[in-house]
Computed example of a mutant assay.
Amino acid sequence: MLEIKDLHVHYGAIHALKGISLTVGDGELVSLIGANGAGKTTALHTISGLLAASSGSVTLDGQDLQKVPANTIIGLGLAHVPEGRHVFARMSVEENLRMGAYILRDPKKLAEHLETVYSHFPRLKERRRQLAGTLSGGEQQMLATGRALMTGPNMLLMDEPSMGLSPLLVKEIFSIIEELHKSGITILLVEQNAKMALAVSDRAYVLETGTISMEGPAAALAADDRVRKAYLGA
């Protein structure tokens, strides 16, 4: 489904991604783990068209995403849940969700997608008229995820969904990620909480200072002493 080959990205003189290559197959949940500043968010921003690559390729089902404007990539079935939620604080929950469906022109389809999101997140339905800025951090993460689901994507890019949440809410968010994966959605997950990420993933990549240092089945990486010492607190 998603294939990245020899991807290089620069911020001015800073070489943020140094020739990374990775794949995410149809129906997989793949994690990209690593420390702060490793280049994880840069990778997602480049995939979704928010950053331009210096060289290399990013393809989705064989289509070159670097030739597709960022605002139309969602129409190819790829949606991005950003780091930090970025909900529209002064709009209601339902207004936020409808903003996620801006490419839909069929009111019936929009209503169907809204009900699908509410089935995944009953709490959002309960708070559909509440201002998004008054939600808890966990609820805002649910809203950001629900907003990304409003176009019925085949694939989700999720950037640090557990950031800033209590341990109880982290478990809830990861339970939701597992549920979405089981429903058939392909997921590329960027996450600092390596233990939780590896527990739910099929495969994973370790990103260190702009390069892929390790890759393989998530269970194998979770058992690897290098990963355990660097990211799992072992």
Rank of each mutant, 00 (worst) to 15 (best):
residue 213 S to A: 14
residue 124 L to P: 14
residue 163 M to E: 15
residue 178 E to W: 00
residue 139 E to K: 01
residue 200 V to E: 01
residue 154 N to D: 12
residue 165 L to H: 01
residue 199 A to T: 04
residue 111 A to I: 08
residue 169 L to M: 15
residue 203 R to K: 15
residue 225 D to K: 13
residue 123 R to S: 13
residue 231 Y to H: 05
residue 220 A to R: 11
residue 138 G to V: 10
residue 179 E to T: 13
residue 124 L to H: 12
residue 174 F to N: 09
residue 220 A to G: 08
residue 111 A to K: 15
residue 153 P to T: 03
residue 175 S to N: 14
residue 120 H to W: 15
residue 225 D to I: 05
residue 136 S to T: 13
residue 131 L to V: 14
residue 181 H to M: 06
residue 193 N to V: 01
residue 218 A to Y: 13
residue 209 T to S: 12
residue 181 H to F: 05
residue 175 S to R: 10
residue 178 E to V: 03
residue 222 A to K: 14
residue 211 T to G: 15
residue 206 V to Q: 05
residue 209 T to V: 09
residue 156 L to F: 00
residue 143 L to N: 00
residue 172 E to K: 12
residue 166 S to D: 04
residue 164 G to V: 08
residue 162 S to A: 09
residue 116 T to S: 11
residue 196 M to R: 00
residue 206 V to K: 07
residue 223 A to Y: 05
residue 225 D to M: 04
residue 218 A to V: 07
residue 230 A to V: 06
residue 151 T to D: 07
residue 181 H to N: 14
residue 234 A to T: 12
residue 190 V to N: 01
residue 167 P to Q: 00
residue 180 L to Y: 04
residue 121 F to W: 14
residue 154 N to F: 03
residue 154 N to W: 01
residue 193 N to I: 02
residue 218 A to R: 12
residue 119 S to A: 15
residue 168 L to R: 14
residue 228 R to E: 07
residue 150 M to L: 12
residue 199 A to C: 02
residue 158 M to Q: 08
residue 128 R to S: 06
residue 210 G to K: 04
residue 171 K to V: 02
residue 152 G to N: 10
residue 172 E to F: 12
residue 145 T to V: 15
residue 132 A to N: 09
residue 165 L to R: 03
residue 124 L to A: 13
residue 167 P to V: 06
residue 212 I to Q: 14
residue 138 G to A: 08
residue 220 A to H: 09
residue 155 M to V: 03
residue 181 H to D: 10
residue 117 V to N: 09
residue 192 Q to L: 03
residue 168 L to W: 06
residue 131 L to I: 14
residue 190 V to I: 10
residue 211 T to M: 14
residue 173 I to Q: 02
residue 228 R to V: 11
residue 126 E to P: 12
residue 160 E to P: 02
residue 122 P to C: 06
residue 232 L to M: 09
residue 225 D to T: 11
residue 170 V to G: 03
residue 221 L to A: 01
residue 186 T to N: 07
residue 122 P to K: 11
residue 179 E to G: 12
residue 115 E to G: 07
residue 118 Y to E: 13
residue 149 L to N: 05
residue 171 K to W: 00
residue 211 T to S: 15
residue 118 Y to R: 13
residue 116 T to I: 03
residue 212 I to G: 14
residue 114 L to D: 02
residue 147 R to F: 01
residue 234 A to P: 04
residue 133 G to Q: 12
residue 193 N to H: 06
residue 139 E to R: 01
residue 113 H to E: 15
residue 127 R to D: 01
residue 193 N to C: 07
residue 227 V to C: 09
residue 189 L to G: 11
residue 198 L to T: 00
residue 195 K to Y: 02
residue 133 G to I: 13
residue 158 M to C: 10
residue 230 A to Y: 10
residue 121 F to G: 01
residue 220 A to N: 10
residue 184 G to D: 02
residue 227 V to M: 10
residue 220 A to F: 03
residue 135 L to V: 09
residue 128 R to Y: 03
